[in-house]
Nucleic acid binder design. Structure first.
Length: 281
DNA sequence: CTAGCTTCCTGGGGGC
DNA sequence: TGCCCCCAGGAAGCTA
């Protein structure tokens, strides 16, 4: 599941491959449930850079003749990945043997960006910021970047105080903080010793959670993310954070702090692993 | 407005 | 070995 560290790792690999390239041809999946918006507008546009907000990849494009400053907005969903390899010869398999290719962007340097997404949860849009609310509503209301100065203890503590929803639900809701998904929510809550279903997190524990989120995401980026099932990087390699997971997917194993068997439950409609001894409501 | 449930999709794992 | 069933999950869309 690509979350912030995985998307950031993909972004870093894309920068040298995409920056300054012009898109000469575009194809996308005609499947009725495919989540594409305005992708035809990519033809003959230049990619100015590769940025990230939360789990969204953003590629600013050169302005249209009408002066419209739109962007390519990509969300990998659960199973999305990107490859950048040679464009296939005419008549050859345009997907070069890759499965589940849902979109292709042919670049002016002889490479093709292939967006693979077995479960079709990913989204690819061409949209200007003033249309985020209609096209990518989560991006329009996204909270601060967790590794930026805007993400403060005060912001997290006050945000948690304004709601009685389970703290894990608040971490997954992209409005409080951007980019945290199921893996790093479980990891941060374990590190901060907070029960995922806790509905009251006062300032002292909010400060622990703030530090845990920052430390976990920083360490995961250093290891280029977690490869659990589908996630892989642009060059096909895996993230190396999986062996550091203390909670996510570790139910039935002993807690690394106290040895208690980690328990699996459901919080916010998501599989959740926690330590019943360290993490009390 | 918020909280929380359902929906989309399909590979893979478990059970028999 | 094969078949069936069901699960995993981010975000959007819905209900109450």
């Amino acid at each position: 599941m690509p979350e912030l560290p995985e998307v950031e790792s993909v972004r870093r690999q894309l920068v040298p491959r995409l920056s300054g390239r012009r898109i000469v041809e575009v194809w996308w999946d005609p499947h009725p449930q495919a989540r594409f918006h305005g992708v035809g507008r990519l033809r003959n546009r230049r990619i100015e850079g590769v940025e990230r907000r939360g789990k969204f990849l953003l590629c600013p494009l050169d302005p249209t003749p009408q002066g419209r400053a739109d962007q390519l907005v990509l969300h990998l969903g659960m199973t999305g990945s990107l490859s950048v390899e040679a464009t296939s010869e005419a008549g050859a398999d345009p997907d070069a043997g890759l499965t589940h290719v849902r979109a292709r962007l042919d670049l002016d340097d002889g490479h093709t960006v292939r967006f693979r997404d077995p479960r079709r949860f990913g989204r690819l849009s061409v949209v200007a910021p003033d249309a985020y609310a209609e096209v990518v509503p989560t991006l329009a209301v996204l909270g601060p970047e967790p590794l930026s100065p805007a993400f403060t203890v005060e912001h997290l503590a006050e945000g948690l105080a304004r709601s009685r929803a389970p703290v894990k639900a608040r971490l997954l809701d992209q409005r409080l903080v951007a980019g945290v998904g199921n893996i790093y929510a479980d990891e941060a809550l374990w590190r901060a010793r907070i029960h995922p279903a806790s509905r009251r997190v006062a300032r002292p524990r909010a400060a622990l959670l703030h530090a845990a989120v920052v430390e976990i995401l920083t360490a995961a980026i250093e290891r280029e993310g977690t490869t659990f099932r589908d996630y892989q990087m642009v060059n096909g390699s895996s993230g190396r954070y999986a062996t550091f997971l203390a909670a996510y997917g570790q139910h039935g194993r002993p807690c690394r702090r106290c040895g208690t068997t980690l328990r699996r439950t459901v919080v916010a409609q998501r599989g959740t692993t926690y330590c019943p001894t360290c993490q009390r409501i």
